[in-house]
Measured scan of single mutants.
Amino acid sequence: KKVTINGVEIKFNNPEEAVKFALELAKRLNLRIEFHGDQIKIE
């Protein structure tokens, strides 16, 4: 399963991993996060 985070394609074994990764990243950098299907936007 491929997920695009800020235009960067990252391959994950499952979608939950991708979501956890994105949330952790957003929390660490104190950023806002948006989900659009397989696209995750962090700003």
Rank of each mutant, 00 (worst) to 15 (best):
V3A: 01
G37D: 12
H36C: 12
N14I: 08
I40E: 01
E34F: 10
K1S: 14
H36G: 07
E43L: 15
R28H: 10
I10W: 10
K20N: 07
N14P: 08
N13W: 07
N13Y: 07
N30H: 08
I42Q: 01
T4V: 15
I42L: 15
L25H: 03
E24S: 07
L23S: 05
T4Q: 06
I5W: 13
A18E: 01
F21W: 13
K20R: 13
F21P: 00
Q39R: 08
K41W: 13
V8N: 05
I5G: 01
V8W: 10
L29R: 00
V19E: 06
T4P: 02
K41D: 04
I10T: 03
R28I: 12
H36F: 12
E9G: 05
L31R: 01
K41A: 09
E34V: 09
I5T: 01
V3D: 02
K20Q: 10
I10A: 03
V19W: 13
L25P: 00
L23E: 10
A18L: 08
I40V: 04
R28E: 11
N30L: 05
E16G: 09
E9A: 07
H36T: 13
E17I: 06
N30Q: 06
V8Y: 13
I33E: 00
N13T: 12
G7K: 03
A18Y: 06
I10S: 02
I5E: 01
Q39L: 15
R28L: 12
L31Q: 01
K2M: 13
Q39N: 14
L29Y: 13
K27H: 14
A26H: 02
K20P: 02
R28Y: 12
L23H: 06
H36M: 11
K41M: 13
K41F: 15
L29K: 01
V19F: 12
I10E: 01
H36E: 12
F35N: 01
E16H: 10
E24F: 05
E17L: 08
N6W: 15
R32C: 10
K27C: 12
V8C: 13
R32K: 14
E43C: 14
L25Y: 13
A22D: 00
E9T: 14
G37L: 09
R32N: 09
P15T: 13
I5F: 14
E9I: 12
E34R: 06
P15H: 14
K2D: 04
N30M: 04
T4E: 05
D38K: 03
E24C: 12
I40R: 00
F12H: 02
E9N: 05
L25S: 01
V3T: 02
K11S: 14
P15G: 11
E43F: 15
K27G: 12
T4I: 15
I40S: 01
I42P: 01
I10M: 09
N13M: 11
N13P: 11
A18W: 09
I5N: 00
L25N: 02
G37C: 01
D38Y: 06
I33M: 03
G7E: 03
E24P: 01
E43T: 15
G7A: 03
E43H: 14
K27A: 14
K11Q: 14
N6K: 04
Q39S: 14
I40Y: 02
V19P: 00
V19L: 14
A18V: 07
L23Q: 08
A18T: 04
F21V: 03
A18F: 09
A18K: 01
E17S: 08
K20G: 03
E24D: 10
R32V: 12
F12A: 02
F35R: 02
E43W: 15
G7Y: 04
R28Q: 10
A22N: 00
G37S: 08
K11M: 15
F21E: 02
N30V: 05
E16I: 09
I10D: 00
K1P: 13
K41P: 01
A22S: 02
I5A: 02
P15S: 13
F35V: 08
L23F: 10
I42F: 06
K20I: 08
I40L: 04
A22W: 08
G37N: 09
G37R: 08
F21K: 04
V3G: 02
L29C: 14
R32E: 05
K20M: 09
F21T: 03
R28P: 02
I42H: 01
A26M: 06
K11L: 15
L23A: 04
L25K: 00
E24N: 07
G37Q: 09
K2Y: 14
I40F: 02
K27D: 12
E9P: 06
E9K: 03
F21A: 04
L29I: 05
T4N: 07
V19Q: 04
E9L: 11
Q39C: 09
L29M: 07
A22T: 04
L29A: 04
L23C: 09
N30K: 08
I5Y: 13
H36I: 14
E34L: 05
E16N: 09
E9M: 08
N30S: 05
P15R: 12
K27T: 13
A26N: 02
F12E: 00
V8S: 05
R28W: 11
K1C: 15
E9W: 07
N14Q: 05
V19H: 07
V8F: 12
K1M: 15
D38P: 03
L25C: 08
I10Y: 14
K2T: 15
K41Q: 08
R32L: 10
P15D: 11
E9C: 09
D38L: 06
F35P: 00
G7Q: 03
K20A: 13
H36V: 15
E34T: 13
K1A: 14
E34A: 04
V19D: 03
F12V: 03
G37M: 10
R32H: 11
K11H: 15
G7D: 04
A18G: 05
E43I: 15
E16P: 04
I5V: 10
A26S: 07
V8K: 08
P15Y: 15
V3Q: 01
K11R: 12
E24Y: 09
F35T: 03
K2Q: 10
N14L: 09
D38Q: 05
V19S: 03
E34Y: 11
G7C: 06
L29T: 03
K41R: 13
V19I: 14
K1R: 11
L31V: 13
L31G: 14
